[in-house]
Design a protein around this nucleic acid. Structure first.
Lengths: 260, 260
DNA sequence: CGTCCACTTGACAATCGTCAATAGCAGTGG
DNA sequence: CCACTGCTATTGACGATTGTCAAGTGGACG
């Protein structure tokens, strides 16, 4: 339901994707309460689950369940117990760390296919808030951990995913440490576009479900600087600001600014 | 032993390893000096190897070799082929990413027990330079990858290590994005102390094998700012500058400044 | 003894943050 | 329907932390 609404929003606001979307072929069933329906899963091809044989999904289905959260819901908080790990199937999350004095660092935005709890730690290392209505596929942490011991290919997939996240984190370090405000925004926009491309297919339309404050806390900037830079890029015809996102006008130029 | 060091230096300086990758998994070498001696390994308890049964070390010994590098040697360069992965057994490395215009971000300093090549990518994602003489335990990437498919516990250990690195990277994002110059230095010093504590045991003496420039490129600061902050902290009796490092005088205060 | 490099220190500049005011929009309730 | 509230975004003026430029010290090494 949320997914459908999202897709409608996406299509309404941004028009059709440049290349055909790959993952919305079949309509998902709203799963009431418990139980998984992996065979219907819309992000099968993106998640760690793809490393399992079809019959192995049964094991997952037994220890997992699907859950929905409304926008603005907090899925879990930094420092609390972490009894579950989960796989995002639709929606967007903000993952953030809070400093004692209130300063905040957004360590990432989680999208469909992303896994929460890679660290398999007993306590949460950051807070996760829903930016849109969100659906996840949730597993008991210890149950999932036990499953890893039985399914080497799943472990391998998790290792690859962790390694991939690590390289993204290192790229983000470069952005945070060595780039100007304008370059940070450019690299953020290009990065979001690339991430949506994996899910919806390539498009110059980039939904931004997070606020300017969230973007600032992700890039190590203030709201005001984010706003000024986005305004400036719009004035310079690099982008157009649309409701709930932006449209990229000069991708080559933006990519050059974001260049690694 | 001296012969080996010279040969390695030769290979390093003249780039033999990177231009003609040899497959050590298949090479039936029994040359004295080559091969592993895992039973004598000084970082056994710290590395991924600890996840293996004693008899499984034999497999590692067959596909790996030990190598030494002098200080300032470049182990590998960003963008080049990555035929090997390795485990650091002694020394310290600087891992850095270079931007087209010359700006540099140090993404980490690698110490004994750290693993290079977690991402298992065919090309290097960053450059690794020796800050001190370095010893590593090196494996062919594909050979090691194959071993992972046979040894689930090793895969699990690698996953945990990648996940741990990821949490460290996220902590570093907070430092880069949301901390002042002084806090960055404090958190860097406390972080280095904690890492050395795992290896050598706790101590207020913190060796700093890297230059101020390296520290700046790690923390998103300039050399001058790093120098000023360290000088100031020494003036305020938080630390004492000693040859090749610092001595921490007021650890509680520093920890408070670095607090997460 | 001279060169090189790391480090330090000072003066000045600029990017970005802080503070403040305002507009726009959605939701709420009289 | 409209006032009211609260949040987000934008814009301007000003300020400070940090970067830039420059000069100089000291240690390592040939």
């Amino acid at each position: 339901m949320e997914t459908l609404a999202e897709k409608v929003l996406f299509d309404t606001v941004f028009g059709r994707a440049e290349t055909s979307p790959r993952n919305f072929a079949c309509a998902p069933k709203a799963a009431p309460g418990f139980g998984l329906e992996c065979s219907d899963c819309e992000i099968k091809g993106l998640s760690v689950c793809e490393s399992l044989e079809p019959d192995e999904f049964e094991l997952l289905e037994r220890i997992g369940r699907t859950l929905s959260f409304p926008a603005k819901a907090t899925l879990f908080e930094q420092g609390r117990e972490a009894p579950f790990v989960s796989n995002i199937t639709s929606g967007a999350l903000r993952l953030s760390k809070l400093l004692p004095d209130g300063r905040r660092q957004v360590v990432g935005f989680a999208l469909p296919g992303d896994f929460l709890g890679l660290a398999m730690q007993p306590t949460q290392l950051f807070t996760a808030d829903a930016l849109t209505p969100v659906k996840i596929c949730q597993f008991s942490r210890v149950g999932f951990s036990d499953l890893l011991d039985e399914k080497p290919r799943l472990t391998r997939a998790m290792m690859n995913m962790a390694a991939h996240e690590l390289t993204l984190a290192q790229d983000q370090m470069v952005v945070l440490g060595r780039r100007t405000a304008e370059e940070k925004i450019a690299s953020f926009l290009i990065g979001m576009r690339n991430r949506y491309a994996r899910i919806h297919g390539a498009s110059v339309h980039v939904p931004l479900p997070m606020t300017r404050l969230d973007i600032g806390d992700y890039l190590g900037l203030t709201v005001e600087t984010v706003s000024r830079m986005i305004t400036r890029m719009a004035r310079e015809k690099l982008i157009v600001i649309v409701p709930d996102g932006v449209r990229l006008l000069d991708v080559p130029r933006l990519e050059q600014m974001a260049e690694m």
